[in-house]
Amino acid sequence: MALDILYFAWVREGVGAPSEQVDPPAGVEDVAGLIAWLATLSAGHAAALAEPARLRAAIDQKFVSLDAKLAGAREVALFPPVTGG
């Protein structure tokens, strides 16, 4: 299951890239599981994704909670709480 991951703001800076394509192992079923698995990819990922409570997510360009299932997802964005306006 190839997934496009997008990172924004300090998550992007911590990971060191704005996006990447990944193929998570079976067993990674929801956003929280994906975050935990991504955190194992590098020291930068680990630091940026260390506190899931500080992260928000969108699947295929819709905001979701971290317990949202990944089934059928093509793109997952991970970012801090938004600060527009």
Binding site: A9, F79, P80, V82, T83, G84, G85
Partner: peptide, 23 residues
Amino acid sequence: LKTEAPFWKRESFADGRHHWVDA
């Protein structure tokens, strides 16, 4: 717009500091 549009602000200061604005 402040809470439901996907924008993030980073502030830079004259003394070289910069930080991402917290919600």
